[in-house]
Amino acid sequence: MTYSFSLTVNGATRAVEIEDPRVTLLDLLRERLALTGTKKGCDRGQCGACTVLVDGRRVNACLILAVTLDGAEIETIEGVADGNRPHPVQEAFIAHDGFQCGFCTPGQIMSAIGLLREGETGEDRERIREGMSGNLCRCAAYAGITEAVAAAQRALAAGDRRRA
């Protein structure tokens, strides 16, 4: 049986046909839509490397069947920059050394964008750490990540409202 559906990925409508309903959103993005910025770490919802936004909410792409997403709006790391200008969260990760090897970084950044939209942490470091607890970093760049999220929060509060 063929499953046909459409979803919006970074603003573009994509019609999808799959024969196998086992395809997760993560595999759809990486293997069928050639969007490999979203990473596969554990594939079990434990590491957060596959974090994307679905209808504005950060979720683990590895734990969602693509076929359930008919009509959904997906945002991935490929869609956050404004042309050549990085997203404020991307700029903050660079400015505050929010990564080392970089493998978890797309998930960290998507999670941070989701966290800022939720708007519950402010610059409270303890709340930021808890709010980022779904994203593991094997290099342990956590101190830089926390500062990057706080800086992005500050930039947004100061009026940098680009696509936050």
Binding site: G45, R57, G114
Partner: peptide, 9 residues
């Protein structure tokens, strides 16, 4: 419980 991503889903 769980993580923010999982609680959102």
């Amino acid at each position: 419980g769980a993580s923010p991503q999982i609680r959102n889903a």
